[in-house]
Design a protein around this nucleic acid. Structure first.
Lengths: 353, 353
DNA sequence: CACGAAATAGCAATCGATTGCAGACTTGCG
DNA sequence: CGCAAGTCTGCAATCGATTGCTATTTCGTG
């Protein structure tokens, strides 16, 4: 792809703009112009009833006219609260340099909505944990009122250590008995079981699981599948580590299918994206879904309904999850205690299984 | 298979850690403990050669031992720079309450990577413009070193006004002659033309365009298609407004197809997502793609290769775009001038057209 | 007319780190 | 031994808004 540049106009305009009455740099200057003290201006801008309504409105008008907005850094330093929530995505077991998993992205979008709604700003940190301090650095920086961690990756212990002394922290991920961290997540084992049960109910006997068990959530999904298959005495299961949302995924899946060499009639995929790719590759090999091989996804992303065949998948209610996370965080910021939430997954039966 | 850390070990370490003497709140306390002045501590922590190497290391060790990290708010207030870049997504013409368009999300991911790499933090604002001040509020808050706007939506004028006096601002979107804002984007008209030309080359005569022309970028794609179709004397074109990434999209598309009632053999879709949905609906009606109707997408998102049939689409190099944006921003923060960038789109020919 | 209460505005300390300037101390050399 | 040069450290001002406390004014009422 070639890039062409064009000159940026706008210099002239820029100069024009300076005609604005000399810009006010701080509250003190505004105060001088308004003929009051800085304190009064501060209170006026905060709309406090301590200052006379008229003065208040006069000052607010003046501020608007000059396009003045109080400096947030100073305000935050003084009030010791920032109104900023950190959203952290640890990329512990993923090679990929960037956040690409649509599930996380979707969750992130919902979190952004919830936080915006509650008047918070959102600061994103995408970390590839290089040491055990990555989370400490974030929460101790003094610029956050709280933090949300999206996905535990393989960093459960680090998160746990921080959670023990840093309250306003909520994590999307799986729940372990007796943990200190407040998590919100779905019962992944149950979800895996749902998918397996569906395939077995269709009559599938030779199942496969595609997913990377390095993340605890995927590992649990796999466990759920395993347990369910074990219950059905005549069924078998093979598990294949498969990257999430990486370029290698397609190649890995192709190789798994080659390994299986047709000895499979049901595949539980650890995510919708994996399922989507699996279905495409099956299709290329002339294998029909769900007739010859049934496939289930996990997440129920919007694309699940947009594909051919529409995906049978295990739904995680992302919007509800985001709401629960922000809610728990809000409670914890306020000093209350908020317990973990484990949501129940739901099988959405469409066409692929 | 997976090596898991012993929980005990982690816990013991933590307890060790807790015996750290009462936590240090600020640089002055650390200074007292170290027996030096606050200024020295500040310089030591910044690793300045002005302070003796031994003292420096001693202080750094002390800080580490106490888990002390200097307060960022204070630092930022004093130094007048925040290291934070605002990323703004204006949702002017979208009803949807949340950021769901995968294209924006992908761009966002790449921006996050680039910014992290250059040592910046990223603050997200998702705004539904309620007045003309939304962008002013963001850039004047004094907490940003610069801002990136993802998509102009229908807010070109507002952005333009702010760009006239606020330099460190870079926008993803289309370029208008003589604009003040620095934009990075693809030549959308050329992209639309590419798609149309491909369909015409396949022999399609009765084209349709699906997309919402309220955003300037989509409008230009549509214009590109129109011009190309006009050149081919025997071809016709119908345009249907279609939401981007909204729940209504599927219904809208179904209704468009009903309106067309088979009188179409080529569809230019304004995004990959629209194309994906269109193909699914065609499939449901038993219409084969590309044999009966050829379909093109726009963006070339990762999913384009994962669907059946794989999508013929117009590629925007998102990674390059993100790089260009961050680069321009960096230059503008440094006070240099950075021109707009118009990238050339590329047709990626796969199976759907 | 006077006194007290209520309403308003100002003063100045404070949040915590940074940094220019000056002073103290060391070292070297004549 | 003294002076200059060079190192290191401390002092105190600064960034800009907030807020407890105090001072002033206004107003109502006895």
């Amino acid at each position: 792809m070639t890039a062409r540049r064009s000159a940026c106009a706008g210099h002239a305009n820029y100069m024009d703009d300076v005609k604005k009455p000399g810009k006010i740099r701080n509250i003190a200057e505004l105060a001088r112009i308004a003929g009051v003290s800085a304190g009064t201006v501060s209170r006026a801008l905060a709309d406090k009833s301590l200052v006379n309504k008229e003065t208040r409105e006069r000052i607010q008008a003046l501020a608007r006219e000059h396009g003045f907005r109080p400096n947030q850094m100073a305000r935050r330093l003084r009030t010791q609260q920032t109104g900023v929530i950190g959203v952290v995505i640890p990329l512990g077991h993923e090679r990929r340099q960037h956040i690409s998993d649509p599930f996380f992205m979707t969750l992130f979008g919902y979190l952004a909505d919830e936080l915006t709604e509650s008047g918070h700003d959102l600061m994103l940190s995408r970390v590839i944990p290089g040491d055990d301090e990555w989370l400490d650095r974030i929460v101790d920086s003094g610029m956050l009122d709280g933090a949300l961690v999206i996905g535990q990756s393989n960093q459960f212990d680090v998160i746990e250590r921080v959670a023990e002394h840093y309250r306003p922290l909520v994590v999307w991920g799986s729940h372990r008995q007796g943990q200190a961290q407040c998590t919100v997540g779905v019962d992944n084992a149950a979800g895996g079981a749902l998918a397996a049960r569906r395939l077995l109910a269709r009559g599938a006997k030779r199942l496969a699981f595609f997913g990377d068990p390095n993340g605890p959530e995927i590992a649990e999904r796999q466990r759920g599948v395993e347990q369910e298959v074990a219950k059905a005495l005549d069924a078998s299961l093979v598990c294949f580590p498969t990257h999430l949302a990486s370029e290698e995924m397609a190649a890995q899946i192709a190789s798994h299918l080659a390994d299986l060499d047709g000895a499979v009639d049901g595949i539980v995929c650890a995510s919708d994206i994996i399922a989507m790719t699996t279905i495409r590759i099956l299709h290329e090999h002339g294998i029909s879904v769900p007739d010859q091989v049934a496939v289930t996804g996990f997440d129920d992303l919007p694309i699940a309904t947009r594909m051919v065949p529409q995906l049978t998948t295990v739904r995680q209610d992302i919007a509800a999850g985001a709401r629960a996370m922000v809610d728990a965080l809000r409670r914890r910021i306020a000093g209350e205690d908020a317990p973990s939430t484990i949501m129940q997954p739901e099988l959405i039966q469409r066409e692929s299984a």
